[in-house]
Nucleic acid binder design. Structure first.
Lengths: 147, 147
DNA sequence: CGCGATTCATTCGTGTGTGAAAGACTATGC
DNA sequence: GCATAGTCTTTCACACACGAATGAATCGCG
């Protein structure tokens, strides 16, 4: 049950619903197998592949506002996943980097999400997955650069 | 700036980012032009087209857990958008329906989101929009019935 | 140099979501 | 008929997001 055709042919509402469902599932798996949340895992991946970054840079990549990043990083620091230090070249800013525990968590989380995304790709089929990925990327970037 | 290619070729993370961006934009427009939030608008549409419903039914359609629905409806009741009454045929449940103000808000919100979704469709193009809509619908329903 | 504008992060108040547990009611099986 | 199991909503504690306002540091222009 819980057919979704539901609300309307309105893309925005559908994306919200899908995002909630996927988030719930991914979050549950990540908590169980890597002991991190879905939001935290996004930060972990970013730091793992691109190294130490400022808070603002994290928010830019993940489309998060400044207060959201502050809170997220604080919780992650409490959990021992990252360390935050003052940027000595610009004392307004702070730099965030992985701890060793954070690095290990990032690698576990990577495995979990790799599996999850493989399942999604399979459900969509290769062609559709590519189109969806492209289309969403367009939606994410457009509203940005049109200013 | 704020290129999104960023995080990874991980569909799940991309959907999260897009959902956040779209939500932020839609929410701002809905607040400004219809004086409701994005979450509230989803409930308004559901009630407008399908009439009085139980809390659980709302949660099922919108993929929300029971506590989320309780909170959402309570805030909407405080705002005068809906009324809640005991279901006399099953006193565990409660029924929610639009007030007159709620109906008017739903219609204004409908205009706003109609425009917003038209913009999205345009950005995607007709073909891709249809594929994306289909693919997301599949993602939303699958994880449901596989139990 | 110095003062105003800008930028980066934080705090505040609020809305929205979660899972777990409790409470109220209904349904079922003996 | 009555205990037990199931269903529906609420409450609780928490995570996560937002906009607006604040504080701290830097930039940039005169």
């Amino acid at each position: 049950m819980a057919r979704v055709r539901a609300v309307d042919r309105r893309l925005f509402l559908l994306i919200e619903i899908v995002a909630r469902r996927l988030s719930r599932e991914a979050d549950a798996r990540l908590r169980a197998e890597a002991n991190v949340t879905a939001s935290q895992s996004a930060v972990l991946f970013l730091l793992l592949r691109r190294g130490e970054r400022r808070l603002g840079s994290i928010g830019e990549v993940l489309a998060l506002g400044a207060p959201a990043v502050t809170g997220l990083i604080n919780r992650m620091e409490t959990a021992g996943l990252v360390i935050k230090r003052k940027d000595s070249s610009d004392k307004r800013g702070a730099l965030v980097d992985l701890t060793e525990a954070g690095r290990r968590a990032a690698e576990r989380a990577d495995q979990v999400l790799r599996g999850f995304n493989a399942e999604l790709d399979e459900k969509l089929g290769e062609t559709d997955a590519a189109i969806v990925y492209d289309a969403l990327t367009r939606l994410a970037t457009d509203s940005d650069t049109d200013a």
